[in-house]
């Protein structure tokens, strides 16, 4: 069995990804606990931070774009997130009149 010697020895990508995830997590926590911003703004910011962190996982940990199916995998996930947004925002909007 051949080895994958061309692979880098120190997992830079993972370490950077991990550090960034920690930064984003604590940033979100800080925005919520001590930023003192308006509620809507807070929620907007933490949702953006969450999306950043999710893409971090997909690209840096999950190797979404690798292999000959990388394109399909990426389109699949992009479409999945589109559907997710439709379901979540759509449901909230549609059911707003009873909330």
């Amino acid at each position: 069995m051949a080895t994958n010697d061309h692979h880098e020895t120190f997992p830079w990508k993972h370490v950077i990804g991990f550090v960034l995830s920690l930064v984003l997590t604590f940033a979100a926590l800080w925005v919520v606990l001590s930023s003192g911003l308006a509620t809507k703004l807070i929620i907007g910011i933490i949702v953006i931070l969450a999306m950043l962190q999710a893409s971090l996982q997909l690209f840096m940990f999950m190797h979404m774009t690798e292999s000959d199916s990388g394109k399909i995998q990426t389109i699949n996930m992009a479409y999945a997130f589109f559907i997710a947004i439709v379901i979540v925002i759509g449901s909230i909007w549609v059911m707003w009149f009873v909330v």
Partner: peptide, 25 residues
């Protein structure tokens, strides 16, 4: 199999999105 699992994860996104939608409503 790896591609199929990615597609399955797409379905999981829709599954959790529905649970999130329910929760947020």
């Amino acid at each position: 199999n790896i591609l199929g699992f990615w597609i399955f994860l797409g379905a999981e996104v829709a599954l959790f999105a529905t649970l999130f939608a329910t929760y947020l409503v």
